[in-house]
Computed example of a mutant assay.
Amino acid sequence: MPPTEQLSEYEQQRLENIRRNREILQSLNIGDGPLLGAAPARIRGESADEVTKAEEQVIESNDATEFYHLPTEHFSTDVVKKAVHVDGHYTGWVEPGVMQRLGIKGSATEAWESEGGGKFSFKDPLGTGKKISKRALPAGQSAAKYVSSQMLRKNPNAYFYRNTEPGVDQWTGDWTDEERDLFIETATEFGCGDKWGLFSTYIPHRVGYQCSNFYRQCIIPEGWVIDDNYRLDSGGKAVYVGNHKRRGAK
């Protein structure tokens, strides 16, 4: 078999998934199955149809085995053409109306510095130079929720990841078609895949983590957006395979 550096990134990822599946099966004392540890079809000289048929047999025989596919392989050509294609990054800022109403500055740097600046760290997310005491937290509120609530004008992405605009109710439950369309419009204009707090300012009544969940659970699996940081498993579930270190804030 040729060395892995001659394989595409997708093929290398697939081999890694196969290796992981082998370990899972061995830990369960289950046989390897016909494809575990096998090279991609292009390397083995087998047709894609032969491999697909064999993979389906393995999937049916053992739920622990998953095979991930590129969205462009999973969906029809028509769906792929109509989908919004993104690189996993949101390039916008706070929605202009929200920014004006709340007095938020025009960029992340301006916002941070105008509200006292300081050095950001996960231990000191407010940049005050002081650790947050658990005793100072409001009753029943987590540290993450408390910190985000203090970041409206200093770090809007952190604030809107967990909070709606002040005075606006947060909706829960299924998304409406109108909300989905608004999501797609925003993704078309600014991209998506990170900075979900900022992204959510374009969708009233929803917060960043809801947008992130909707993205993974509906938008990608239904083919509305094609993001190469994701693959789809045999059941059509979105699986992140990108590099978290290269992505921006959540």
Score class of each variant (00 low, 15 high):
S107C: 10
G117P: 08
D78N: 14
P3F: 11
L36A: 03
T72H: 07
V79F: 02
V98T: 05
D124A: 06
N21D: 08
Q6I: 13
D227T: 05
V58P: 00
L152A: 09
L15C: 00
A108S: 13
T201F: 02
N21Q: 08
Y90W: 05
E165M: 11
G103P: 02
K195I: 04
T4P: 04
T188E: 15
G248W: 12
D228T: 09
N17L: 06
K81S: 12
R44A: 13
N17A: 12
D228S: 11
D177C: 01
L232C: 00
K53D: 10
V94R: 06
C192G: 02
E11F: 03
D177K: 03
E46S: 15
K119M: 14
G103N: 11
K250N: 14
V79R: 09
N21T: 07
C218N: 15
T52C: 07
R206A: 03
R231V: 05
K250Q: 14
A54Y: 06
A41C: 05
L152W: 01
K105V: 12
G103C: 07
V225E: 02
N17M: 13
G116D: 03
K81V: 13
Q57C: 11
F214P: 11
G242M: 05
S133Y: 05
K195M: 14
T65L: 06
P156T: 08
E110H: 02
N243L: 12
G127P: 01
E16H: 04
G106D: 11
A143K: 15
W196S: 08
Y230V: 01
L70P: 05
E115G: 09
S200K: 00
D49C: 07
R22T: 08
G97N: 15
S76Y: 08
F122E: 13
M99L: 07
I18W: 03
L35W: 02
E23C: 03
V147N: 06
S148A: 13
R135S: 15
S47A: 10
Q170E: 15
W93C: 03
Y240E: 08
V225I: 09
F120M: 10
Q57F: 10
P3R: 14
E73K: 11
S8C: 05
E95S: 00
R19K: 13
L36H: 04
Q210I: 04
N213A: 12
Q170C: 12
I43F: 10
N29E: 14
L35E: 09
N229E: 10
E165R: 01
A54D: 10
R231N: 01
V225L: 06
